[in-house]
């Protein structure tokens, strides 16, 4: 297994998160290795976003041992936050600031020097071929472009791990493809990518995929192994089979 060769950067043991009587995360166990592209799949309300929020230090778990980048999620959220990048499913850069100003602001609050901010901004915009629009405000730019910019902003401080919560929602197929190229490049540079998605074709691009159903991890393996275990030919079928099994159990 590839995971054995690289050190884990995310370690989750017995993660439980309760909201009153509702159990959003029911005893989750997984490790994510450095530089891995880890896919997090599940229907709406399966508990993906709750898990991501806990890993990012935005929410405290009810119980379990969880460490991210070697830091504990109960006590060391500030250290964790320095090591991670995050892109939420809701587009969240400032629409009334220009591209350059958004980079400058986020670079600044991560404590980068002005020179570094300027260099990285130029470098990343160059790579995106968006240098020409650096002085446009975000509300003048199409959504697909904005998503790529948001990914770059989440990477401006060169984090160890980047969390992408449904990054390609509402984006056209060409832009999605370009987006995944960016993800591969990040992983090649040793950055761990933790990504949630609805698109099953995207699940095929991940090294390993965990499938959440009703707060539990139903399956966790490489896409190839998952397809073989379930005896089907696509991730789509894997997902439907696992989700349906759960529904039958409940019914």
């Amino acid at each position: 297994m590839i995971t054995k060769q690289r050190p884990p950067v995310i370690q989750v043991q017995n993660l439980v998160k309760r909201f009153g009587n509702f159990i959003a995360n029911d005893n989750l166990n997984f490790d994510v290795a450095q530089g891995e592209i880890f896919g997090f799949l599940g229907a709406n309300g399966a508990g993906k976003t709750t898990a991501i929020k806990i890993l990012c230090g935005l929410m405290t778990p009810t119980s379990g041992q969880i460490s991210v980048a070697g830091f504990d999620v109960y006590r060391q959220t500030d250290q964790i936050k320095k090591q991670i990048g995050y892109m939420s499913q809701k587009f969240s850069m400032y629409e009334d600031l220009t591209v350059k100003e958004n980079f400058q602001f986020y670079g600044g609050i991560y404590g980068l020097s002005n020179i570094v901010i300027r260099e990285r901004t130029a470098e990343m915009l160059d790579k995106l071929q968006m240098s020409g629009i650096k002085n446009k405000t975000l509300n003048e730019i199409p959504l697909g472009w904005k998503q790529k910019l948001a990914f770059s902003v989440a990477m401006i401080h060169r984090p160890l791990i980047v969390f992408l919560d449904e990054p390609t929602g509402g984006v056209d197929p060409i832009t999605r493809r370009q987006f995944w190229e960016m993800i591969y490049e990040a992983a090649n540079n040793g950055i761990t990518v933790f990504v949630t998605t609805h698109y099953m074709d995207e699940a095929e691009y991940c090294e390993r995929v965990s499938i959440m159903v009703d707060g539990r991890i139903e399956a966790l393996d490489t896409p190839k192994n998952l397809r073989e275990q379930q005896g089907v030919s696509s991730m789509n079928e894997v997902f439907i089979k696992l989700a349906r099994k759960q529904n039958l159990n409940n019914g």
């Binding site: 230090g57 935005l58 936050k81 320095k82 939420s88 969240s92 850069m93 609050i109 991560y110 404590g111």
Partner: peptide, 13 residues
């Protein structure tokens, strides 16, 4: 309301 606060909250600010 715009969701930008979430992005702020994951920074070490």
């Amino acid at each position: 309301e715009f969701g930008t606060i979430e992005q702020i909250n994951v920074t070490p600010i």
